[in-house]
Design a protein around this nucleic acid. Structure first.
Lengths: 283, 283
DNA sequence: CAATGTTATTATCACATTGGTAATAACATA
DNA sequence: TATGTTATTACCAATGTGATAATAACATTG
């Protein structure tokens, strides 16, 4: 079998020779960062606050920037990719640093390369989507607790509203009809600046779209709940993400193949106890 | 309203001052390339060659590298992202250069950042998926015709086989069970080297998975056909991509809402003519 | 020109899935 | 014991899907 080295280019160089004389600065260089869109839902706390179902929210983890650029603004947790780590490794490292948690659901989302997205220089950002089981997590565990917070996410017709305590961030959204080949589709794009750093409003919106879409052909929603859960809790997760009410009997039927009874029951008072279930893997 | 400049960092610098003194080389730099997985199906030519339905194939555009590294090997068409262009712009430019075509269906697929994926240096690759209507396209129109070709794609249990004329490229595939949070899933990964340059076997396999999955919740398949087509041709596209036969009446029903009659009929002999349809956009 | 072969298209049926409402169950409290 | 609350099951209608059969519209052949 031929080895690569047997081939020579038009200058007569073998691959080994070529690589030895290769100048890495021949092309423009740039930097790569990873930014994480970390979602969670705190069903328990939302219940304690007497929230109605339609008032419950998905939350996203934001950190306040304490360095230029965009100092003082909220941003998605992120950081630069080290020269010797893969993108996934960088995302795991960054999420661990910001949340203290490991083994989360995590997937690469999209890569943003607008030349002007960072005022410092050309920085490409690869975004990751991550889902957190809030019962395992307390913000105080994080080394960054003083300037990180879970913001409730609310989508309205023309804007995305993020709120936490008395902070309120609005991101304008444009519904835009785009054509891609023969396919016409409605795209949701953020427009203009906001109180969010960089283009993180766009990253957040894209993450939101991804989870809303992916919830009905995968089981990612289970990652937002603890090991044992009632069907009602699970249904609430779906309702919050999809932004609409679901019918209990139909939901129960559809989900029944994916869960398994535990025989344990809830201790809530004043009504029939609900059974706890666990996620059952497909065979 | 406050401007960003009013904030000062711990060194007392405003954002403007910070940016003026920013050293872009403070972090490790790298390069970014875009590689395109361009699929097409040539129904007409496959019919002329008396191919049976189950013998029809999806094809992907490969170009032969005439420079180090991987000189002489086949690769996906790609190139470096210019310092002043977005990733989408780079993909459009590259596809136009390689195929001569514009206004194709195109979407960003995934970003690959393994530190060792390129022997020259750290090069990140952002892959794009593109679909081509073969009736509008002839390879001879391309400025790169001498070293580019449509390779038929065939997936088998443990390998991906690409073939064109007497060339045959095999890419080993590993079915790997991965766990991501609570979700267990089967992933298909390419293993080891092949006659394909870089990690392009992986890019190709991921593109294949994406199109197979996306075909049943979007209308991307229409991008592989010309304006007017018979339902049978459309069904063949679906069969080729999904890799299995479909029942004509069921397919007809399902697709009927997405197409519109033209009143024109095929001229083929020996049987009932088929009506031509056009893609109908949703209201 | 009728019989045959070929592909296109429609009809029909059984079955599964889903949206929706009603009924029942299992508690706590008044 | 009656009432309120949530959980769970039963049931029905409407819709969608897999599958086979029937019919239509040609060309070709004997």
């Amino acid at each position: 079998m031929k080895t690569v080295d047997e081939f020579h280019d038009r200058n007569g160089f073998s691959e080994k020779e070529f690589l030895q004389s290769y100048n890495p600065n021949a092309f423009e260089r740039l930097s790569l960062s990873v930014d994480a869109v970390i979602f969670s839902i705190d069903i328990e706390s939302q219940k304690k606050n007497y929230r109605k179902l339609d008032d419950q929210r998905l939350t996203v983890l934001l950190v306040k920037r304490n360095e230029h650029p965009f100092i003082g603004k909220w941003s998605l947790p992120g950081g630069f990719v080290g020269i010797e780590e893969t993108l996934d490794e960088a995302a795991i490292r960054i999420i661990k640093n910001k949340t203290g948690l490991d083994n989360l659901y995590m997937e690469q989302l999209y890569t943003y390369g607008n030349p002007n997205r960072d005022p410092r220089m050309r920085i490409i950002s690869c975004s990751y989507l991550s889902l957190l089981d809030r019962s395992k997590f307390e913000l105080s565990q994080s080394p960054l607790v003083t300037d990180s917070a879970w913001f409730e996410v609310e989508t309205m017709e023309h804007k995305l509203v993020l709120s936490h305590a008395d902070e309120r961030i609005e991101v304008a959204i444009e519904k835009k009809e785009t054509r891609n080949g023969k396919i016409k589709s409605m795209e949701y794009k953020t427009v203009g600046g906001s109180k969010l750093a960089f283009d993180h409003g766009t990253l957040l919106l894209d993450g939101l779209m991804r989870i809303r879409h992916k919830i009905d052909y995968t089981d990612i929603a289970f990652n937002l709940l603890s090991e044992e859960f009632s069907i009602t809790q699970l249904q609430q997760i779906y309702e919050i993400i999809l932004g609409k009410k679901l019918l209990a009997p139909a939901f129960r039927r559809k989900i029944s193949t994916k869960i398994q009874e535990t025989g344990k029951y809830s201790q809530e008072k004043g009504h029939r106890p609900s059974q706890f279930f666990v996620y059952r893997e497909e065979e």
